[in-house]
């Protein structure tokens, strides 16, 4: 809410254009959202890579290192506006919510392919004669940009509305599919498509904010795994790349064996601090 508090922008159909926009926000927060006070890191990375001037982004690489090392996918769970929207859509009652299915694990790798192809390689190498590229992920895939930027701006601006064509229809279709799926599958975009989640997932195992399972308290009842909306098994690997730190496992654990914290807040034996429960089979 705080990072999208430029409320006048929604009424005027304009985006905030102050210097704060040079700072990236941790979540997938489109910089063309009228309310946004900062930049989307995925959009910013594409902007730098598609520029003829740069082949690598030190600014964004450093940003991802810092946020990933401190928070990991906590960002996905608590700091991403598009994650929140999917979360709310997921609360819509539906007769059969799908937790996992055949091919689920394989599909989760798609977000890494999207990160490599649409966020890095295409903006870097699919360039015009002047050497400039386009933000291909934003252009062809990102439903957050359509929802946070496209819809409010087109509603407020008749000129933009008249310019909308096939691409806008395509992006609306993607947004519609993601929104509809969100009512059935918990956070489908985060699970299968989000390149930002793919980046932060690489840090989950090493992040300063982390989960730990006390092997002495854990009774292997498996309740944590049953409530996990990301289909992770916390008792086996508390800091799994897919864990978005939603905290459902902590709430569900009858033995209070799961805890979370930073650096020295875990006064625990080595097996606990490792975030893995060696008493369980892999």
């Amino acid at each position: 809410m705080l990072t999208n508090s430029h409320l006048a922008g929604f009424a005027q159909g304009r985006i905030y254009a102050g210097k704060l926009k040079s700072i990236c926000l941790p979540g997938l927060n489109c910089y063309s959202c009228p309310g946004s006070l900062g930049s989307c890191p995925v959009g910013a990375l594409q902007a730098v890579l598609s520029s003829a001037k740069y082949q690598f982004s030190f600014y964004l690489f450093g940003f991802f290192l810092i946020i990933g090392t401190v928070l990991g996918r906590f960002v996905c769970g608590f700091l991403c506006p598009f994650g929140l929207i999917q979360d709310l859509l997921g609360r819509i009652p539906f007769p059969k919510k799908i937790r996992t299915f055949k091919g689920d694990r394989g599909l989760r790798l798609v977000k890494y392919v999207i990160l490599a192809v649409f966020v890095i390689l295409l903006p870097l190498f699919l360039v015009d004669a002047a050497g400039g590229g386009e933000p291909q992920f934003c252009k062809w895939i990102c439903p957050a940009g359509t929802l946070e930027g496209g819809v409010p701006l087109l509603l407020a601006d008749s000129v933009l509305r008249s310019a909308a064509g096939f691409l806008f229809a395509w992006k609306l279709l993607i947004l519609g599919i993601v929104a509809a799926l969100s009512a059935v599958v918990w956070r489908p975009f985060c699970k299968y498509l989000c390149p930002l989640g793919a980046v932060y997932s690489l840090f989950n195992g090493i992040s300063i904010y982390r989960y730990a399972v006390d092997g002495g308290k854990c009774t292997n009842c498996g309740r944590c795994a049953r409530v996990c909306l990301m289909s992770v098994q916390p008792q086996k690997e508390a800091n799994h790349p897919e864990c978005v730190r939603c905290g459902e496992c902590k709430k569900a654990c009858p033995a209070g064996a799961i805890s979370s914290g930073c650096l020295g807040s875990f006064q625990a034996p080595a097996r606990l601090a490792a975030g893995k429960n060696p008493s369980l089979p892999r």
Partner: peptide, 12 residues
């Protein structure tokens, strides 16, 4: 990039 409306981002 961020202070102008990104036409690609919004689908234009």
């Amino acid at each position: 990039k961020a202070i102008y409306i990104c036409l690609e981002c919004i689908g234009i």
